[in-house]
């Protein structure tokens, strides 16, 4: 096909890095051979179909049949397959390089906001503005579904601001508290 020939001139192989649960996988697509891919350098054939819900996916990869469900989320994608959960980030080579450059440049966020992971009610606040907190330390207690859940600090840092009060109802995603991460240089 003429079109295939044309694309081949300025488009060749696209490389993507797929990170799953922290482990990277390299997938290459050769646009001239549409049913083949290279997975970590190994050539494979694929056939992917989607169901009534497009998130319902059936993939046959080198005759291995796999059924899974995949959805977009804030970080990338979440897949559920054979009773397991997979957190996935899809990046092309350029994005990945850009991100690693930014990282190397010391581009760090200066504040970290703690958000409610579900709607509920604030029962107690365990810290005060200005408090230094360690990673894993309890920050506040939110009650939902008749259970009290302690929200823990994801990092070492200082409490900058508390945005809620005890007995206040909170929505999912609502900002609860702002932390200032400790600069990594201080860590011994």
């Amino acid at each position: 096909m003429l079109r295939g020939v044309l694309t081949r001139q300025h488009d060749e192989i696209m490389t993507y890095i797929i990170t799953i649960n922290g482990r990277p996988y390299e997938v290459e697509l050769d646009e001239s051979s549409p049913s083949n891919i290279r997975l970590n350098g190994e050539q494979m054939t694929f056939d992917m179909r989607q169901g009534v819900h497009p998130q319902n996916v059936s993939l046959i990869l080198d005759n291995q049949s796999l059924m899974f469900w995949i959805e977009k989320n804030e970080e990338g994608y979440h897949a559920h397959c054979q009773g397991r959960d997979f957190n996935i980030v899809v990046e092309d080579e350029k994005t990945r390089q850009l991100r690693s450059v930014l990282k190397a440049g010391g581009e760090k966020s200066t504040v970290s906001s703690i958000k409610a992971s579900m709607p509920g009610m604030v029962v107690r606040i365990l810290v005060q503005p200005g408090d230094r907190v360690r990673k894993g330390q309890g920050l506040l207690i939110v009650e939902a579904m008749k259970m009290e859940n302690e929200i823990k600090s994801p990092l070492n840092g200082t409490v900058k601001q508390i945005r809620v009060a005890p007995l206040e109802a909170v929505e999912k995603g609502e900002m609860l508290l702002i932390l200032e991460p400790e600069s990594t240089g201080d860590e011994k």
Binding site: I70, Y77, F86, V90
Partner: peptide
Amino acid sequence: GKQLEPAIAVGALLYH
């Protein structure tokens, strides 16, 4: 779920 990850990686990219 490690042994499923390579195939999921391919599926996720195609889906994306």
